[in-house]
Design a protein around this nucleic acid. Structure first.
Length: 591
RNA sequence: GGUUCAGUAGCUCAGUUGGAUAGAGCAACGGUUUUCUAAACCGUGGGUCACAGGUUCGAAUCCUGUCUGGACUACCA
């Protein structure tokens, strides 16, 4: 049994035995002992003073006596105010390290027999990916990997938004202004080429609006009447009728975009088990509308449009089908949700989508629940904050975005500069260098985005480069490289069931931190928060670096102690490697 | 207006189910290497946890109100 739960149970026993009172495990706090006091684990005994009718000090001492008597690994205790600090025997921590070392996949939790779908990325195919998408992709990927490590079966899904008026805008602009440009002819990445015409459309559209306004139309009229937007709408109709010319153009330009996305996905290191395309799903959902009407969940207005009244739930009336029978956003999402469930029968489904859509998902889940879908309870919107620039929000149409490909290239270049300045890569082959620069640059970027609580908005200042020192990805990567370096130099050793004498503070701190790893995975999975894991890995790296700095390893004459410390290095390195993998970050053997 | 998320050091962020004197990093200043990687380690300075009440042995954390900022509140997706 875990020592923490053992202490909790034993404390319940103590309270029952000494004070004749029943307490709940939830009422007992066992926490790490603060550095300035002696001991490793602390029981908060304030809650029991009302049973004992004694001072916190006396109560703590009484419980301390009881615990020390019953739990053999408790060597001593002290009480400060109401805090009972327990000194756990070093032999216990050593056996913990041995136990960790004997597990081939420490931190991979047992299978939970539950299937979880994680939908993320979900790009529009009319422009390249920007920093906001990067956050989405890294978050989705990492949450999926953490869930896997926590024992869930995970399906990663990408629902590609490949149709709609916005797609027609870039198509039309390309037709109009493109002069037959292709990725081949221009050497541009396909998604960037298409994005260029999306911007071109917007410029032409704005020009027409201002021309019409100069002729006396109001802004609203001008927005509706601009010839180019009308043409885009015509194009969408043609697309829906599968007009061959439009349809082929659509296929060709989407093909360019997919090729471009593939490159970006590859540099981000994200992947998917299944792609859904909105061009296949946009007609779905009509049968759900019928179902809802039959069940009386929806109602029809005079103009034939279909609505749901959510005022009792504190929301508004919401349109679910237009008067002309065509779908809106939520119609197809209803249908798509149903289809995904039929395809996989997962217990949970996580939508990784920005917090600007909080309202949409609230409505979506509520509707499915009202329709009596048993699986609606398992739907969850992982809502994350926008990435903002100091100047405000990023807008693709206005070109005020931090482009994903450019940012990646800059990060790698900056990693290269800083690595070369340190002068540690003279013996690297050019492949090794390339690979290291990429690992460090991407590690810095990914950690930067993942260490922040997902639901918080993130500020990115393009004028300030992302640090490679301190609480950063490269710091953790460096710690790993140190682990590996020592082990390389130690050569072949069998590091098993090693016993040593008393532990130094640094050694004990490492073990205490290390053994938390599985619990961190569990928490990160439950909270859908890679940030918890990221911050843990930083803490682990910090205690390891302190140990590495303060304690000799290879210079030791005591073979047992050397082997013990090597094992500690090995296990810290393993945990860092495993954990970073779940964040999608690679760790180098040397740096 | 309504809904919702946030507000912690100059900046970027941690802070477990309420627990001890609120922690890191960056930036500033100072120190550590003939010894396993100095992308490291150690130290100094820096706080009215937005504000005001309340609950409690105990509140950054829970409750109420106020202020500030973001998002949403489309027959766009």
């Amino acid at each position: 049994m875990n020592i923490n739960t053992q202490i909790v149970h034993c404390t319940i026993e103590a309270v029952r035995h000494m004070y004749g009172q029943e307490t709940d495990a939830a009422a007992i706090t066992v926490q790490d002992t603060r550095k300035e006091f002696e001991g490793q684990l602390t029981v908060v005994t304030f809650p029991f003073t009302k049973f004992s009718r004694q001072s916190p000090e006396q109560t703590g001492a009484a419980i301390g006596d009881y615990l020390k008597e019953k739990i053999s690994v408790i060597e001593a205790y002290n009480v400060v105010k109401g805090f009972l600090n327990l000194v756990i025997a070093d032999s216990f921590w050593i056996s913990e390290l041995n136990a960790i070392s004997s597990q081939p996949f420490f931190g991979n939790l047992p299978a939970k027999n539950e299937k979880v779908m994680v939908e993320y990325s979900s790009p529009n195919t009319n422009k390249p990916l920007h920093l906001g998408h990067v956050r989405n992709n890294l978050l989705g990927y990492s949450v999926a990997e953490i869930l896997k490590a926590a024992g869930y079966e995970v399906i990663k899904v990408n629902l590609v938004n490949d149709r709609g008026i916005h797609i027609c805008k870039s198509m039309l602009a390309w037709q109009r202004f493109g002069n037959g440009e292709t990725p081949q002819s221009t050497g541009m990445k396909g998604d960037h080429l298409v994005g260029k015409y999306y911007v071109a459309f917007d410029q032409a559209y704005k020009q027409q609006i201002s021309d019409l306004m100069a002729e006396g139309q109001t802004e609203d009229e001008a927005k509706k009447n601009a010839p180019i937007i009308r043409e885009a709408q015509q194009m969408l109709l043609k697309w829906e009728q599968k007009d061959p010319e439009v349809y082929n153009l659509w296929k060709m330009m989407n093909g360019w975009v997919y090729k471009g996305f593939d490159v970006t996905y590859k540099s981000l290191g994200v992947d998917f088990d299944r792609f859904y395309y909105e061009s296949d799903t946009y007609m779905l959902g009509k049968d759900i509308i019928e179902e809802g009407l039959a069940k009386g969940v929806f109602f029809r207005k005079e103009d034939n449009s279909v609505w749901i009244d959510l005022t009792e739930d504190g929301l508004d009336q919401k349109l679910v089908l237009r008067g002309d029978g065509t779908s809106v956003y939520i119609t197809q999402d209803l249908g798509t949700a149903q289809m995904k469930y039929q395809d996989y029968h997962m217990q949970r489904s996580i939508y990784v989508v920005g917090n600007e859509q909080d309202y949409h998902f609230k409505v979506l889940f509520l509707i499915l629940d009202k329709l009596g879908k048993s699986w609606a309870k398992g739907l969850y919107h992982l809502s994350y904050g926008m990435v903002d620039l100091p100047s405000g929000k990023m807008k693709s149409r206005e070109g005020t975005v931090v482009d994903a490909d450019e940012l990646i290239a800059e990060m790698i270049a900056s990693a290269q500069t800083q690595t070369e300045e340190l002068g540690k890569v003279s013996e690297f082959t050019s492949e090794e260098k390339t690979s290291l620069y990429r690992q460090v640059g991407m590690g810095a970027l990914k950690y930067f985005l993942l260490k922040v609580d997902p639901k918080k908005r993130l500020l990115f200042d393009p004028n300030e480069s992302i640090d490679l020192q301190g609480n950063t990805g490269p710091f953790i990567q460096y710690s790993y490289a140190r682990c590996r370096s020592v082990l390389r130099k130690a050569g072949e050793k069998t590091l098993n069931n090693i016993v040593t004498g008393a532990l130094s503070d640094q050694e004990r701190d490492c073990i205490i931190m290390l053994r938390k790893y599985p619990a961190v995975i569990e928490e990160a999975a439950a909270a859908y928060s890679p940030a918890l894991l990221a911050n843990y890995l930083y803490d682990l790296s910090k205690v390891f670096n302190k140990f590495y700095h303060d304690e000799p390893i290879l210079k030791l004459e005591d073979e047992n102690l050397m082997n013990f410390r090597l094992m500690l290095c090995e296990q810290c390195g393993n945990a860092i490697n495993q954990g970073m993998k779940l964040l999608g970050i690679e760790v180098p053997e040397k740096m």
